[in-house]
Nucleic acid binder design. Structure first.
Lengths: 111, 111
DNA sequence: ACACCTAGATGTTACATGCATCTAGATGTG
DNA sequence: CACATCTAGATGCATGTAACATCTAGGTGT
């Protein structure tokens, strides 16, 4: 789930790792949190496969940042992810329905 | 995701592995499919942890069946799963929203 | 000079999943 | 009877993902 989140944020604007992390957390209202380790690995893999490109940002203060930018292939991949996620959500909802139904019509849910 | 599905079906009635498989597939309209291998492993684990109990069904034709039945702890676990699943669905939806928003308001989704 | 912060990166482990494969017993058929 | 086939259960292995800790490098502030 890191991948689509990263691609999505990069679709709006190029940015670097830590920023992506903050952006995702922010956009999701704190619901989606990325582990930095996994995130960097995902970014490197995405770059290897041509979905994003990176350049070391030369200016600024603090350590150098690797600026990531979405490629056209990345944008396509993101669209595929959108479909995939929606499909998975359908499965998920179906599962939730089964569970809820099995617990009985009376909502013991919060018990 | 096998676990909640199994618990849910068992909450309605005790049954055995293959039947559970069919039940889940059926109840989900074919959306949720369980790999037999994973399913049996999940069932054994659930039994080890006391969430289900099993007995070899003696009668009938064909190979012996292991009839699984939900325990009280299992029912509790299922309720926990219900909450958990709903929480995860929220996260999921949040992610989908981010992705969809990033692809732009104009629905390029099917492109 | 030194502590600290930020940004990036790696190693390790755990866990779930998917796929193939194996066993045992029942049944059906030549 | 011998043999193929079906069902139910079970195991092995490879893979993908995620979580957790840890490490490096370079700037910044005191």
């Amino acid at each position: 789930m890191l991948e689509p989140a990263l691609l999505a944020v990069l679709a709006s604007a190029p940015s670097h790792g830590y920023d992506l992390r903050r952006a995702v957390e922010d956009l999701s209202g704190g619901l989606v949190c990325m582990d930095p380790g996994g995130m960097y690995r995902a970014l490197r893999r995405l770059e290897e496969e041509g979905y994003v490109t990176s350049t070391w940002s030369t200016g600024g203060h603090g350590p150098q940042r690797r600026e990531y930018e979405l490629s056209d292939e990345g944008r396509s991949l993101l669209r595929e992810w959108a479909e995939h996620l929606k499909q998975r959500e359908r499965v998920f909802r179906s599962l939730i329905e089964i569970v809820e139904r099995s617990l009985g019509p009376a909502g013991q849910g919060a018990a």
